[in-house]
Design a protein around this nucleic acid. Structure first.
Lengths: 357, 357
DNA sequence: CTGAAAGCGCTTACAG
DNA sequence: CTGAAAGCGCTTACAG
């Protein structure tokens, strides 16, 4: 006779013999109005008399009622869930992006569904599942690939793309200014090192960020009257090992003394730095080095690593806002945000005070 | 007359004048059966004659039909969405955990909803939203707090907890074996350093991981007949700066020469390492150091940092499996998984070959 | 093996 | 300002 469980919170299953699923019906009964009125109190309070509203709200409180989202979404065709599809990106990158997107989505009353394979419907049984649940999609792209863009165009939901901003992409895009960041870094290197001893160490060709950074590096050298030789730009991958291998080879060839290097990301830069240390080259005296991303690790290294800051949290925030704008104001103009990067100079590339030594 | 858009894929909006929302009705009409039969073909193929099934499947293909998940979930009360609630954890940690959980969820046909504030309903308008959408929750806890556990108990959905495994928690738990990892690390330090010159540098008291690691450190010293002095265990936070400050102070006091230190995580260890370098202490000759987590950065540092590996991806995977088990076999026994840690010895703590120097 | 029907829990014109 | 009714797109007994 005595139910064994005693529920501490007033909201939940107090008294009633059916402990779960308090529905709009229960609220309507308890407050003596129709379910339509309950719905109005919750969704369009302006349409209801204050007295009625009060009664209903009391009932909602007492029962701990919360509307069934599936029923609601079935009617409204809106779930307030945003899908996020990310490529295999570096840990810190991923975390910063998700954290910031999550915070923003929460602020705006949305939730984030992670779906690394949303636009690869062939993978796994999850299979496009997300697409039916989601109001829109944030997709991060890192490769120059029409395939991805076409797949996205084929989707039936609004999309915001992080990482690509090419002509003819009629969706919201959020990018960072790789060109300016790489130019500033290159100018900084050129301020203390002759152009023919400057190098760029990139990821594989086809990676959008790496390619843009490489192009800006080359252009900045050209702007100073130096047409970079092939050997001054190298392409591998976003990996410690690649930076290490490249540097070891060049050091063996005697090419890195009094040189300056821009790496396409911090991890490549760390590979280069460790190889240099291993071979007895001093930073910044013998070799000046700048990474890219300005990840947390930069200031933990010795010497601290100069880097170009990429505003990942801002980009994630912008992406959420852009997508929500598209959802809530479908007729607004499509925007293309390009967020600023900035050079952070630390010991690995610092010039001696007072100019030449 | 000619619709302007030409859709390349056969599935989508080909021909029909209403381009969106092909419903079960459309499929039923096209294949000449009832919607009930369409539903059966999709959900219980065994109940339908092969011939009928073939017709229906063809129609599904042709129309590119996908069931409306909201309608479906309204009936079945299942969304195949798992909520993930994480505290503010370190970047790499977060990324590894989410990546692994995402992969596993996808394999099993589930999706992940990130909701950093799922059990903090007071924060933001997103407000418990997730709870209505989600079949169950994976919650990671890092603090010793009844509040969190009670809040979780108050939830009406199945839960798997990462990080806590205390008596009386009647839910699935997934932890790692902090005690064994810390013991192995301490034994490794004791093998070359007298117990009174061994230190543990932890996070704040109350952090579950840090406290467990501290306790194991102290116990291991005791097991060798040395009762650790207060000064041998310090508590601050999981931060580079804390490690740096602690080390600077102790070095100034002359306490860290020929010492051995277990840090509660890698970041604290890096702070200690940098301070040691700054003050001219050599690792491992003057000071031997072991971190905790074995994050990626350990092998990028010079000297490489010894660390205790925490199997984060495995834990995430286990959590997903545990939760799904709870969802799909509600009567199965509640399990408490404790995953093994392991000591990874690198240069920062290595003993000279052949024993004593 | 298949269909007609009820109903999941809500929202929203439509009348009052 | 409020209620009765239709219906969102599906699943599942219930009869055949």
């Amino acid at each position: 006779m005595n139910p064994p469980e005693t529920s501490p919170e007033p909201a939940a299953a107090n008294g009633k013999s059916k402990p779960r699923s308090v529905s709009i019906r229960s609220v309507a009964d308890l407050s003596g109005v129709s379910i339509a009125t309950v719905s109005r109190v919750l969704n369009s309070p302006g349409l209801v008399s204050p007295a009625t509203a009060k009664k209903v709200q009391a009932a909602v409180q007492e029962l701990g009622y919360r509307p069934n989202l599936f029923a609601k979404s079935l009617l409204t065709k809106r779930s307030r869930v945003i899908g996020v599809s990310l490529p295999d990106i570096h840990g810190e990158f991923y975390a910063e992006l998700m954290h910031s997107a999550d915070r923003r989505a929460c602020e705006r009353g949305y939730h984030l569904l992670v779906s690394s394979n949303a636009h690869h419907p062939e993978e796994g049984p999850g299979n496009g599942f997300a697409l039916d649940l989601v109001d829109g999609l944030i997709v991060m792209l890192t490769e120059r690939s029409r395939v991805d863009l076409d797949a996205i165009a084929g989707l039936r939901v609004p999309v915001a793309i992080i990482g690509v901003d090419e002509a003819g992409v009629p969706v919201e895009t959020i990018t960072c200014d790789n060109a300016i960041g790489a130019r500033r870094a290159t100018e900084h290197l050129l301020a203390g090192t002759p152009p023919e001893r400057c190098f760029f160490v990139g990821a594989h060709r086809g990676n959008l960020d790496s390619d843009q950074r490489a192009a800006a590096f080359a252009n900045t050298l050209r702007a100073q009257g130096h047409d970079p030789a092939d050997r001054q730009l190298a392409f591998g991958e976003f990996a410690f090992e690649w930076g290490w291998d490249w540097a070891m080879e060049r050091i063996a060839a005697g090419e890195l003394t009094d040189s300056a290097i821009l790496a396409a990301n911090d991890e490549i830069a760390i590979g280069i730095a460790n190889a240099a240390r291993e071979r007895g080259l001093d930073m910044p005296a013998d070799l000046r080095l700048v990474g890219f991303d300005d990840s947390r690790i930069c200031s933990l290294l010795r010497p601290e690593l100069s880097s170009v800051r990429v505003p990942v949290p801002d980009m994630a925030r912008e992406a959420v806002d852009a997508l929500i704008r598209r959802l809530e104001e479908p007729d607004s103009a499509t925007r293309h945000a390009r967020l600023p990067t900035s050079l952070v100079i630390r010991d690995s590339s610092r010039l001696p005070v007072g100019g030449g030594l």
